[in-house]
């Protein structure tokens, strides 16, 4: 169980939610046409890596979480990790 608080971009606080992170990582995997089972597995493995990093950190920013999640996902699905990193980059 990870009790980290996330500092949002606007300054607000939010409790870390593994389901939310897993869901967004799985969506990134599906967006590169990974089969659903593979997407869920990759997402779960990446979340486990992120949680190891979160241990002992009471507060991190959402940007930190996103960066670490992308770094974790690149191990299992590099294309999905790229999409995950780029998701807010409209340019």
């Amino acid at each position: 169980m990870v009790d980290t608080m996330l500092v949002k971009r606007g300054g607000g606080l939010e409790a870390y939610d593994p389901a939310k992170l897993r869901s967004s990582l799985a969506a990134a995997c599906k967006s590169v046409r990974a089969p659903e089972g593979e997407a869920e597995t990759s997402a779960a493995l990446a979340v486990a890596r992120v949680e190891r990093w979160l241990m002992g950190r009471p507060e991190v920013t959402t940007a930190d979480i996103r960066r670490k999640a992308a770094e974790a996902l690149v191990v299992y699905n590099p294309e999905a990790a790229y999409i995950y990193q780029q998701h807010k980059n409209i340019s």
């Binding site: 799985a26 969506a27 990134a28 599906k30 967006s31 590169v32 046409r33 659903e36 999409i83 998701h87």
Partner: peptide, 9 residues
């Protein structure tokens, strides 16, 4: 496109 693919099962 990424969002459409990501949300469909």
């Amino acid at each position: 496109g990424a969002h459409v693919l990501g949300r469909n099962d």
